[in-house]
Design a protein around this nucleic acid. Sequence first.
DNA 1: CTTGATCCTGACCATTTGGTCAAAATGGGG
DNA 2: CCCCATTTTGACCAAATGGTCAGGATCAAG
Lengths: 206, 206
Amino acid sequence: MTKSADKNGKTRIQREKRKQILEAALDVFSQFGYRGSTIDQIAKAAGLSKPNLLYYFPSKDAIHAELLSGLMDSWLDPMRALNADGDPKEEILSYVRRKLQMSRDFPRESRLFANEIIQGAPRILPAIEGELRDLVAEKSAIIQGWINTGRIAPLDPQHLLFSIWSLTQHYADFEVQVRAIMPSEERVYPRAEEHLETLFTRMLSV
Amino acid sequence: MTKSADKNGKTRIQREKRKQILEAALDVFSQFGYRGSTIDQIAKAAGLSKPNLLYYFPSKDAIHAELLSGLMDSWLDPMRALNADGDPKEEILSYVRRKLQMSRDFPRESRLFANEIIQGAPRILPAIEGELRDLVAEKSAIIQGWINTGRIAPLDPQHLLFSIWSLTQHYADFEVQVRAIMPSEERVYPRAEEHLETLFTRMLSV
DNA sequence: CTTGATCCTGACCATTTGGTCAAAATGGGG
DNA sequence: CCCCATTTTGACCAAATGGTCAGGATCAAG
């Protein structure tokens, strides 16, 4: 009777088309923000008609919500990896490297978040005030511990985290600006990694 | 005959209302981006009817353009102030302080730019590839000079500038996130200034 | 206080937008 | 290859949006 459906009750076509749509929506939302994007735009980018897209998702809002919630977790993973028992300098440096890699490999995802937060984070404020806030508190305590035992130079742990976010995400969020300024033959990310490595090494050395 | 008009041919009312409109438009555009904002929203925020607003500006686009162009200059001023003949560390540190002040005092302006650049800078790419690019080239050369004469530690001048921008603008562009994470009684900007002063002092010391 | 210039409004218009629906097309298990 | 569930489509709708316009209200120079 029913078509071959996986455990989530999704057919092959449903899985494929939903993925297409989310991919296209990421393109559009990350560039124009929620209100600046239209269903038609997303549908066209996904190679579907508007009603067809609305067969897979009930509304524009539902697409956006699914994108954001699906992203939130993977976005915080690099910070979760910060390990109290590792070497402090190396832990922080690899967090920086991981974040920079994410900017390079997932710039649209970064811009999606940036757009959302600039606009006051109307749909993810709870997650920020909950999950993210807790994670920051936890990791700040770890960093403060490293400072107290003299393993890295003293600084404000929370602002250190802000610095890591801003420095790395900048290369994704302001990609156009960076590209417009750098000589075009220049490979941006290798230089950026070198630069940030230098920066954090100096900043953290006792 | 004609009403008392200043040298620009603007009456008192015109000057007042245009200022009101630009102020309201800054509020709206900086939050929702160009496509996400509506004339009605801006008009309401300015306390005018839509047709009345359109009496002062010919179109939504004209308002946005005037905001951006009016801002571009003052936005680059702190960088222009970087003086080759000053004390290198002090020159860079006061640039950082000035940029941080701008984030604190003009966060909406910062977000207006951020929105524009995230969306691919459709309206200001020429200015970025021209004015800004040239200014960066000029100031990079100055910084490189300081490095060559051993007055600051070696690093990539362009990426240093990117770092200054991202670190300072983050406090304006991601204000909601910063506020959601910091304890509410904490005064964000004084700590941020301390932090950035520490960061850049360490990074630039030979 | 008159009068012409300036300012403001409501009514209006074409287009875009989010979303619906009935019906047609397609797919794949039996 | 049959048949029903799934997928797709075009036509449609109400609301929102950018913008226009004719006429009325208001301002300030003389």
